[in-house]
């Protein structure tokens, strides 16, 4: 059993069209860099200088990693990671 990683549509071009791939347990940032070795180009779309990009949200089991331990959040086998672009939109003032 590995970590399940959900890939958003705009990034599926990099994952051979797969909406879900397997990731390595450990720190989120290491998981992203490991995915990059199999799916080149993924890391730079999602992160910059070891930091997750501002308009990319990463959830571990539905919780935003910004409210866990950020890039250093640990994930283990069986956890679910979702990469979700925050599409700037919204309403109001």
């Amino acid at each position: 059993m590995a970590v399940k990683v959900r890939i958003p549509t705009p990034l599926q071009r990099l994952t051979e069209g797969k909406a879900e791939v397997e990731g390595k347990p450990g720190k989120i940032i290491d998981l992203i860099n490991d995915l990059d070795s199999r799916y080149p180009g993924l890391a730079e779309r999602v992160s910059e200088n070891g930091k997750i990009r501002r308009f990319v949200n990463i959830y571990v089991n539905e919780e935003d990693i910004r409210f866990l331990d950020g890039e250093n959040t640990e994930v283990k086998d069986g956890d679910e990671v979702s990469i979700v672009p925050a599409i700037a939109g919204g309403r109001g003032i």
Binding site: R45, E48, R53, F55, V56, P85, A86, I87, A88
Partner: peptide, 21 residues
């Protein structure tokens, strides 16, 4: 606003590279 990539004037609103506005 995030990564500075430039685009032509079109009805688009999000950077296709880094998802910034």
């Amino acid at each position: 606003r995030e990564c500075g990539r430039e685009y032509a004037v079109e009805p688009i609103y999000v950077c296709e590279f880094c998802f910034g506005p």
